[in-house]
């Protein structure tokens, strides 16, 4: 990039073992992508378990899915899409040196992630109230299938692991928000915003698959 050439513009976050800021940026980004590969395979084990059980007990998935609220699952999908948009906006704001907009967009992202977790909390506690627990703790009578607990074991494991990722993402967003308020990010240096954004978009993609796989079975 042309505006990276002068030494005066080099960020104080530039580390000496890189040739230039661009190399540092690209190395960080590739590292994040390699981490995302491990994340996809981490979730992949659970998705594989889902495929195995759905092919063994297709009728169970149709029956048990009715206990999940399509409206709230859909609202959460829209909430996460919105938060992905605001992360992308935060990165764009950094690239254009609009420092105030970085903080605003990160703040909205953090709030939307909070909305997602609050909705998840109400979904889970409603099920606990009915006796829908994973595995051997399952005590709900409303689904006429001997393996009903298996569907909800998968549901809690997959949405739970996803939820843990959202909570970690909220911590990262809070950290980015704090740093953006301290003025750390600008068009020369916004690597943490960029790679946290990649993580956040992957969390969004995982939910894009979880939503139809659990809520939209007929």
């Amino acid at each position: 990039m042309a505006n990276h050439s002068s030494s005066a513009s080099e960020s104080r976050f530039m580390q000496h073992h890189f040739v230039d800021a661009d190399q540092q940026f690209d190395a960080a980004k590739m590292g994040m992508w390699i981490f995302l590969v491990t994340e996809i395979l981490f979730f992949g084990g659970l998705f594989a378990a889902y495929v195995v059980y759905r092919l063994w007990y297709p009728e169970l998935f149709t029956l048990a899915s009715e206990e999940l609220n399509t409206l709230w699952g859909g609202v959460n999908t829209v909430v996460l899409i919105g938060s992905s948009l605001t992360v992308a906006m935060a990165i764009k704001s950094a690239q254009l040196n609009q420092k105030k907009n970085i903080a605003i967009n990160l703040g909205i992202t953090l709030a939307l992630a909070g909305v997602f977790m609050v909705i998840k909390y109400f979904e889970w506690t409603h099920k606990f109230h009915l006796g829908i627990f994973p595995g051997e703790f399952y005590s709900f009578e409303g689904i006429d299938h001997p393996k009903a607990n298996i569907f909800f074991s998968l549901y809690y494991l997959m949405t739970g692991l996803h939820g843990i990722h959202v909570v970690i993402g909220m911590g990262l967003m809070a950290w980015l928000l704090w740093r953006s308020l301290k003025g750390h990010f600008n068009s020369e240096y916004y690597t943490p915003v960029e790679i946290t954004g990649l993580y956040w978009h992957l969390v969004d993609i995982i939910w894009i698959f979880l939503f139809p796989l659990f809520y939209l079975i007929d």
Binding site: M30, W33, I34, L36, L41, G44, F47, A48, V51
Partner: peptide, 17 residues
């Protein structure tokens, strides 16, 4: 990198099935 992770996921599912 992304495509390779999807390919390995497909292998995992295929061999499990």
């Amino acid at each position: 990198l992304l495509i390779s992770s999807i390919a390995f996921f497909a292998l995992l599912v295929a061999f499990t099935l």
